[in-house]
Design a protein around this nucleic acid. Sequence first.
DNA 1: AATGAATGAGGGTTCATTCAT
DNA 2: GATGAATGAACCCTCATTCAT
Lengths: 186, 186, 186, 186
Amino acid sequence: MTRPLRQDAAERREKLLLAAQAAFARDGLDAPLHLIAEQAGVGRATLYRNFADRSELALAVFLKQIDDLAGRTRARLDDPDVFVWFLEQMTRLMLDSAGLSSAIRDLKDEALAPIRQGLKAAGAEALAVSQAAGRVRPDLTVEDIRVLALMLGAPSRTAPAKAREALSLRSLALVLDAVRPRGDAA
Amino acid sequence: MTRPLRQDAAERREKLLLAAQAAFARDGLDAPLHLIAEQAGVGRATLYRNFADRSELALAVFLKQIDDLAGRTRARLDDPDVFVWFLEQMTRLMLDSAGLSSAIRDLKDEALAPIRQGLKAAGAEALAVSQAAGRVRPDLTVEDIRVLALMLGAPSRTAPAKAREALSLRSLALVLDAVRPRGDAA
Amino acid sequence: MTRPLRQDAAERREKLLLAAQAAFARDGLDAPLHLIAEQAGVGRATLYRNFADRSELALAVFLKQIDDLAGRTRARLDDPDVFVWFLEQMTRLMLDSAGLSSAIRDLKDEALAPIRQGLKAAGAEALAVSQAAGRVRPDLTVEDIRVLALMLGAPSRTAPAKAREALSLRSLALVLDAVRPRGDAA
Amino acid sequence: MTRPLRQDAAERREKLLLAAQAAFARDGLDAPLHLIAEQAGVGRATLYRNFADRSELALAVFLKQIDDLAGRTRARLDDPDVFVWFLEQMTRLMLDSAGLSSAIRDLKDEALAPIRQGLKAAGAEALAVSQAAGRVRPDLTVEDIRVLALMLGAPSRTAPAKAREALSLRSLALVLDAVRPRGDAA
DNA sequence: AATGAATGAGGGTTCATTCAT
DNA sequence: GATGAATGAACCCTCATTCAT
């Protein structure tokens, strides 16, 4: 009896997350909430029922993406260059979402801290593997993962899209140079 | 003759620039304008008289800083490591101003483009000098200056201040690694 | 089911229209919107929710009055002097609403054009009837309806109210003289 | 010694009147005062020194035009149709100045009353002459002059200019029909 | 539970008017 | 006197959040 209801609720939540992801990607972390609700096809209060505030919504949106990346990364831990791959994926994520880089950075909302933690966790194993294989500088630490993410996300919210992509790729190239061991040809 | 009047006005304008710089540093590029006016000890309309809109104000605030950096850089062009020094100064600038990195990045306001141009101009000579001296990778281009600035500014708007400083310094270290010629002992 | 909700909203909308009509009548088309909201006993944003901007509000206010007049006019088309009656009613409308004559005239807001159209439609049949009965000059056209409305509305926004009424009545008398066939005793 | 000064002042005042006339004609009675001062090439305070407030300025602007019309009318008092000519001139005045019709009508500013008085005086003799010659209905009174002026000015602030001119001419035609004696072929 | 109407606070902007120079 | 910079009041509008239905 309550099962269909539950399903309905889950679907609504999913639609909200999708709409929010799109809005954050397009307009940044401060996209109007009422537009997100509208574009999800639900009432405003439903959004508030599912997510107490903007932070919680953002958290859910971005953690999903981080978790996804974490999973895909774990599946590649036998590749010695997995950390490079991880950074490439991160770049794409940042390129596709103006909000994510803000979420990793922004001081206004300490509630977003779990995203930083999730990011660190997602990359830690990859970093260890690549360092063990000598493909990444041994002095990098898990703390650096956030720094690298910030650097890769820096070009987001830059217009136009073409330029943004070019800047992102150049950032990635420079970051990879910084990350590879000295003297590595790569 | 009209000097006293002008002086008064100039002082107010200066106070506005200072207040704006502080506000942009603290709250980012979208700090409320009325707070800037208030904190400058001026009426709102005085702000509008001096700067037609937020962009114009931001432009003035940030160009001043960029110009200052450009001047100081030109005075050091005999140092082969001047580009490294330039990046260090840039880091400090970014660390001190949450707004500046937005200004270099933000798509919402194409009026801020001159800042990007000013930045490029400020670093171009330093880059050439350091490249000629073999202290910086020869394949870096003036276009990369913006990318490097974005990367160095990425940690801005990160709290708390202590963490922000640590992140900035780490960014700088990584960027310098990326910028130095391969095989360089640094 | 959703009727109660709708009813509430409809009532508020009605209150807004009433308040707007009063305000436009008293202060002209540029009455402050926040006063209208306040006097309707509603928050400002409610006004904006119901009417996207001042024009839309004015349009609703005045079209309602025009529509009402049109309906009453249609019910009198068997009176050969219906056009005279129409002009009398118009005079009263103008007398009671400083905003309406502006709406029929004002160049600043082309969005108000439908009011002119509605007015023309409202009077066209009455004009035809009265012309057929020989009670109105045969050379008047539907385009003249607007001119006559403007002339009848000219004394609006004249103070004090007593004087305004006298001016309006005199305008009406003169307009009727202009409209009756030559040589008519009237 | 003070003569040149006086002359300067008079010139400034003249420039202000011209600028105000243009601004009132273009934007109506509520044209921004600072634009008038600017366009007159004087400081704002000079405007205030010459005219205590907007009403006084408007009064000066419009009285000048009314006086001019009065003078030209007096010079034509031997023409039995002088009142018709007076109304034609009035039409042109109204057509050329969006502000004048407001000034004759507007309730917000009782200080403009002298304009109404001036208008009445300007037309009184012409009316008497034309009535004596049997060219104008004998029952018109000097009070009607204001009503006629209002009716002729009604189309002002109507856009576009072409339409405004057409409406004005039609108003004039209808007014003349109302003013001529019954049975007159005219 | 879901809805979306209502709210009020907050930010942007303009302009009449004053006042230091 | 003339100037125009400064002021603050007033208005417009948007959005996060609540609440009646």
